[in-house]
Design a protein around this nucleic acid. Structure first.
Lengths: 230, 230
DNA sequence: TAAATCTTGTGTAAAAAATACTCAAATAAT
DNA sequence: ATTATTTGAGTATTTTTTACACAAGATTTA
């Protein structure tokens, strides 16, 4: 088989996607990292990602890589920044389009694929390969901004959840503390939650109602224009 | 001179930047467009932009193109989305990193460079080349979101401006109407404006105070964390 | 088994912000 | 001089935010 080459009059960069995958364990925000098996940065942790093919958009490429490396399909992803420092990859010029994904931690069977994948709490993330530290900071920044306009938190929680869990999530994402009573009031005021019955999940002391995210109401609300304030 | 070629084992896309340049004429939000002199889309209007060089980041490339095509230097730019549909350019695979710039309209001497550049009010923008219609919509969306977190409006106004002008700008960007008195109250409450003396600029009837954006106070406020609400 | 402790559901009073106005002074046009 | 327009300043009402209080259910401790 002949070594077919692709030639251009001007030099072209490589284009990759990288995906910061956020999960929530009930207390802390986590990210999924894979250990690099090859140089450069062999043995270092990095975000899943890879080269974008010529016949796919970056969104399609990101979803494909996500599936290949974690088994996740149909995840919620959002592009947040493109990193293009000429020297960000020591091998060649690589421009990467960065995404974040919001997934339920239990949906990912970490570590059973070819790639060694592992969840890390935000405050336990090791030093990362390439400029992925910077990418993580940018992802967090965007996530925090997004939460003001969309109720993204629901992608991270189980189908049914308590107000406590929801509050824990918001506190983890925004790194703030809310008054329990006021948080519930505000959250329920949007009418995008449906109250169910009892819970057993955490049962620390008194039982708490379970809620479900009501997508219909949310879409109605979105039409009218609104903002989630915290 | 020999035709040097750049060869790769795998095909590589081209990477460009495009810049949506916003300006404000005191009433309406405007964008700067250039008329394409070559195919494809010859004769159509498009955003200034061009190929990213191998030794510059996309940010540097966008600023360089901005200077080449409009004479603007040191403009405020922000990357907002990367467009990567495989068929967005009929010639070859081109991925474009899109920016928006906020400039003072009077700083651009439109139409004196090689490229024919012209300002268009948002509601008078013609059909654009490539997927630039989509790019414009995305830029506006981002601009509207950004205004909640940063007082970006000041990049679009002259050094000294009246509350009326500031209100007009916010109304133009967000496409809403505010109560004059309440807008002023809210705006002054942030303490990022410094009141000056009188005006002559518009002088429609009664003279209005001029204000200047106070960057120091703004940075203090930003440290504490805040949000511009409208 | 009773007491202490923790968590959740519910509510309330005070403070802050948003909203909808009013009114007079300054200026330009008639 | 009269009229119309625009700005500065202010007020009253409503709504939202914030900081708490308290009792009920459940678990742990004594």
């Amino acid at each position: 088989m002949e070594d077919k080459m692709y030639s251009y009059k001007y030099p072209h960069p490589s284009v990759t996607t990288d995906c910061v995958i956020f999960g929530f364990d009930g207390t802390k925000l986590q990210v999924l990292l894979v250990e690099r098996g090859i140089e450069p940065y062999k043995g270092k942790w990095a975000f899943p990602g890879g080269f974008t093919k010529m016949d796919e958009s970056c969104e399609e490429g990101a979803l494909r890589e996500l599936k290949e490396e974690t088994g996740l399909t149909g995840a919620y992803i959002e592009q947040f920044h493109t990193f293009s420092d000429p020297n960000r990859d020591p091998r060649e010029r690589v421009i990467t389009v960065a995404f974040y994904a919001l997934v339920r931690i239990q949906d990912v069977k970490a570590g059973d694929d070819a790639a060694k994948a592992e969840w890390f709490a935000l405050d336990e993330v090791p030093q990362l390969a390439f400029d992925h530290d910077r990418i993580l900071r940018a992802a967090l920044k965007r996530l925090r901004e997004r939460i003001h306009f969309e109720p993204i938190g629901f992608e991270l929680l189980p189908e049914k959840f308590t107000l406590k869990q929801l509050q824990n999530l918001y506190e983890a994402i925004l790194d703030v503390r809310f008054d329990r009573s006021n948080f519930a009031k505000k959250m329920l005021h949007f009418n995008i939650l449906t109250q169910l019955d009892e819970t057993v999940w955490p049962t620390p002391k008194r039982e708490a109602y379970l809620y479900r995210f009501n997508e219909e109401s949310y879409n109605e609300l979105k039409q009218k224009g609104f903002r989630l304030e915290f």
